[in-house]
């Protein structure tokens, strides 16, 4: 997956979790929580979506790495590389 594909994937899942954000610009480095009022349940749904789409098992300890768009992309690429 290229950087761009990963980014599109994360954004698509984010917009599924919070449909009213569809089309919004996402700042890659600002946490979703601050940027879009994403709460714990939205965040869990985001993690569920990432797991479903990529098959990557995401342990709870890794959640802090997924708080931003750039964090998600880096994490996906790193974990993809391992499998």
């Amino acid at each position: 997956m290229t950087q761009e594909q990963s980014e599109d994937l994360v954004k698509r899942i984010l917009f599924q979790v919070a449909p009213e954000l569809e089309g919004e610009d996402v700042d890659p480095d600002e946490p979703f929580r601050e940027q879009f009022e994403i709460d714990s349940m939205d965040f869990l749904n985001l993690v569920i979506g990432l797991n479903k789409e990529t098959g990557i098992e995401i342990p709870e300890e890794d959640y802090p790495k997924l708080e931003t768009l750039s964090g998600c992309v880096a994490y996906l690429n790193q974990r993809k590389g391992q499998t």
Partner: peptide, 17 residues
């Protein structure tokens, strides 16, 4: 909860709420 969630697939994990 941390132990419990380690055993659970992502979709069934519990929020502390």
């Amino acid at each position: 909860l941390e132990g419990e969630n380690r055993k659970r697939p992502v979709a069934e994990r519990l929020l502390y709420a």
